[in-house]
C-alpha cells in the first residue's frame, strides 16, 4: 500500500512536469502568468531550503539577492548597454560577489542573530538601491519596450518565452540541488541538518559547507531576480527588494511543505498558490490565514506536510538515500 502511494506520488510528479512542459501550448496567458509566478517562487523556496534547511543558515534576507540580481541586470542591460546573454551571467556574478561579502559579515552569527542580521543587510541594500543614480530612485524604472520585445513581438509570445526561461531555471535549480544532495558534500549537509555537533566530529567541515550553501545559492537567487524583473517589466526598491514577496512567502512555503527535504518546497508552493487563489480577494484575512497555518504547522507538524506524509510512507518520493548493497538510490 505504502509503495503504491510512493509510485502514485512519483507518477504525479512526472505528470506535473509534463504539464509544465506543454503549458505554453495548452494554457491561456493568465494561467501562464500564474505558473510563471509559481515556478519563480518554487526556485526561491528550493534555494532557501538548501541554505536554511540543509545548511542550517537561518537567513531571512534572501530578498536582498533578488533585488541585487534585478538591479545588476538593469545596470548591465540598460545603463551599460550589454547584450542580454552577457547581462544575465554578469548579474549572477554580481550577486555571487555580494553573497560572498554578506556571508563574510554574517558567518559568525547564529539563529535569531543571523536572521535579524541578514534582514538588516537586505533593508540597507534596498535603501542603497533607492539612491543609486540612473536606477530611477525610490520609484524605480521600467524596462524599455525594445528590450522586452527581444522575448517576443506580442505579449502572449513574450509570456511564453519568459515562462520557458523560468521553467528551465526551476528544473536546473532542482537538478543541481538533487545532484548536490546525492554527492559526498550532500551527505555532509544532511548530517549537518540533523546534528551539527555530531557532523563536526564525523569530519564534516561544517564551516565550509554552510558557506558553500549560502554563497552558491546567491547567484541562483539573483537569476530568479532577473526573471522576476522580466515578468514585471520594471525594477523598484520596494518590489525588487520585497521582503514579503521574496522571503516571507518563501519561508511560509518551505515551512508548511517541509524544511530540509526536496519534496517540501514543491508541496509548499502548491499549497501557497492554492490558498492565494482562493483567498486573495479577502484582503488581510488572506495574510492572517497564512500566518495562522504557519503557526499551526510549526506547533503540531514541525517537519511540515511532507514530514507527516513521509512518516506514513517510510520513504522519499524523490530518492536521495544511499543503499547499503547496490549503491543506488532507494
Amino acid at each position: 500500500m505504502t509503495s503504491g502511494f510512493v509510485i502514485f506520488g512519483r507518477l504525479a510528479l512526472a505528470a506535473g512536469l509534463i504539464c509544465l512542459c506543454i503549458a505554453p501550448f495548452a494554457f491561456t496567458p493568465a494561467v501562464l502568468v500564474l505558473l510563471t509566478q509559481a515556478l519563480s517562487m518554487l526556485s526561491l523556496a528550493m534555494l532557501w531550503n538548501l541554505v536554511a534547511g540543509y545548511g542550517n543558515v537561518m537567513v531571512i534576507g534572501q530578498h536582498a539577492f533578488v533585488g541585487i540580481g534585478a538591479y545588476a541586470f538593469y545596470g548591465f542591460a540598460m545603463l551599460a548597454g550589454l547584450h542580454m546573454a552577457v547581462a544575465l551571467p554578469a548579474a549572477m556574478a554580481v550577486t555571487l560577489a555580494f553573497g560572498s561579502m554578506v556571508y563574510a559579515m554574517l558567518y559568525r552569527l547564529r539563529t535569531a542573530y543571523l536572521a535579524v542580521g541578514s534582514w538588516v543587510v537586505a533593508e540597507t541594500l534596498m535603501l542603497v538601491a533607492s539612491r543609486l543614480p540612473g536606477f530611477g530612485g525610490g520609484s524605480g524604472a521600467s524596462l524599455p519596450a525594445n528590450l522586452l520585445r527581444t522575448f517576443g513581438a506580442r505579449v502572449p509570445e513574450r509570456l511564453s518565452t519568459i515562462y520557458i526561461m523560468v521553467l528551465a531555471v526551476a528544473v536546473l535549480t532542482f537538478v543541481l540541488i538533487w545532484a548536490l544532495m546525492r554527492s559526498r558534500i550532500g551527505l555532509g549537509l544532511a548530517a549537518l541538518r540533523d546534528n551539527e555537533e555530531g557532523a563536526a566530529v564525523a569530519g564534516v567541515n561544517t564551516r565550509l559547507v554552510r558557506a558553500a550553501c549560502f554563497i552558491l545559492a546567491a547567484p541562483m537567487v539573483g537569476l530568479v531576480g532577473v526573471l522576476v524583473t522580466l515578468q514585471e517589466g520594471r525594477i523598484s526598491p520596494v518590489a525588487s527588494f520585497s521582503m514579503l514577496d521574496w522571503t516571507i512567502y518563501v519561508l511560509f512555503i518551505v515551512v508548511i511543505g517541509g524544511l530540509g527535504s526536496l519534496e517540501g518546497p514543491i508541496i509548499g508552493t502548491l499549497v501557497f498558490f492554492l490558498l492565494r487563489e482562493l483567498l486573495q480577494d479577502y484582503g488581510t484575512l488572506y495574510l492572517i490565514t497564512l500566518g495562522a497555518i504557519s503557526i499551526l504547522i510549526v506547533l503540531f507538524a514541525p517537519t511540515g506536510l511532507w514530514g507527516l506524509a513521509r512518516r506514513k510512507l517510510g520513504r522519499d518520493l524523490i530518492p536521495l538515500t544511499h543503499d547499503p548493497k547496490t549503491g543506488g538510490a532507494s
Binding site: 551527505l187 555532509g188 548530517a191 546534528n195 566530529v201
Partner: peptide
C-alpha cells in the same frame, strides 16, 4: 548524536567519507 533522518548505513557513511 545520530543523524536521525538518515539510515544507519548512511550515518556511518557520513563519517567514512567526510574525514
Amino acid at each position: 548524536h545520530p543523524f536521525v533522518h538518515l539510515s544507519v548505513f548512511e550515518n556511518v557513511l557520513v563519517s567514512a567519507t567526510q574525514a
